[in-house]
Simulated assay, not measured.
Amino acid sequence: MGSLGLAWVLAAGSATHFCLCIHVFLVSSATARSKTSLGQITVKVNKTTAFHPAPTPELVNDRLRENAAAMGADAVVLVRYGDVGISMMSWGSLEGKGRAVKFLP
């Protein structure tokens, strides 16, 4: 942990921006490693217009990593995805949830 990684993030419907983030692991199940929970993370990636590409799990993963790094987390466990669908403000959304954790020494 603690090594810096550089990532380019392209959010559906927005411009590309540069993000300097701590490397954060994503795990779809619980881990046996000793850890402390920092809290639940929920992110949503929207398709702004009918002409933008559909949100992907990779975009959701980038947002989960960004939010977890801002909290000082080493990993996001119990990651899951769910379609939000079309609404009055979006042509489609993909939601991701997980729990930010910090590994104990």
Rank of each mutant, 00 (worst) to 15 (best):
Ala68Lys: 04
Trp91Arg: 09
Ala73Glu: 00
Lys97Cys: 12
Arg99Glu: 15
Thr49Gln: 07
Pro57Asn: 00
Trp91Ala: 15
Ala70Val: 07
Ile86Leu: 09
Trp91Tyr: 13
Gly72Ile: 07
Gly85Met: 05
Gly85Thr: 07
Met71Thr: 06
Val45Pro: 01
Ser87Gly: 11
Pro55Trp: 08
Gly85Glu: 01
Pro55His: 06
Phe51Trp: 10
Met71His: 01
Ser93Ile: 14
Met88Ser: 14
Arg65Lys: 15
Ser87Asp: 04
Val76Asp: 02
Gly72Asp: 01
Arg80Glu: 08
Ala69Val: 06
Ala100Asp: 07
Ala73Thr: 01
Val79Ser: 01
Gly96Thr: 08
Gly92Asn: 11
Asn67Lys: 04
Gly98Cys: 09
Asp74Met: 02
Pro57Arg: 04
Tyr81Asp: 05
Thr48Asn: 06
Gly92His: 11
Lys97Ala: 12
Val84Glu: 08
Met89Ile: 14
Gly98Trp: 07
Val84Phe: 05
Ala73His: 01
Asp83Arg: 13
Asp83Ala: 14
His52Met: 10
Val79Glu: 01
Pro53Asn: 00
Val43Ala: 03
Ala68Asp: 07
Lys97Ser: 11
Thr48Ser: 04
Pro57Val: 08
Gly85Val: 08
Val60Gln: 04
Arg63Glu: 07
Asp62His: 14
His52Asp: 15
Asn67His: 02
Met89Ala: 12
Thr48Arg: 12
Leu59Gln: 13
Thr49Leu: 09
His52Thr: 13
Pro53Gly: 01
Ala75Gly: 07
Trp91Phe: 14
Pro55Tyr: 08
Val60Lys: 02
Thr56Glu: 02
Lys47Val: 09
Pro55Arg: 05
Leu94Met: 05
Gly82Ser: 13
Gly96Cys: 11
Arg63Asn: 02
Leu64Trp: 03
Glu58Phe: 04
Tyr81Ala: 06
Ala73Gly: 03
Leu59Met: 15
Asn67Val: 10
Thr49Val: 10
Ser93Thr: 15
Arg99His: 10
Asp83Gly: 13
Thr49Asp: 11
Asp62Val: 12
Gly92Ala: 13
Lys44Pro: 01
Arg65Leu: 08
Met89Phe: 13
Thr48Asp: 03
Ala73Cys: 00
Pro57Gly: 01
Pro57Ser: 03
Gly96Arg: 04
Thr48Ala: 08
Arg63Lys: 05
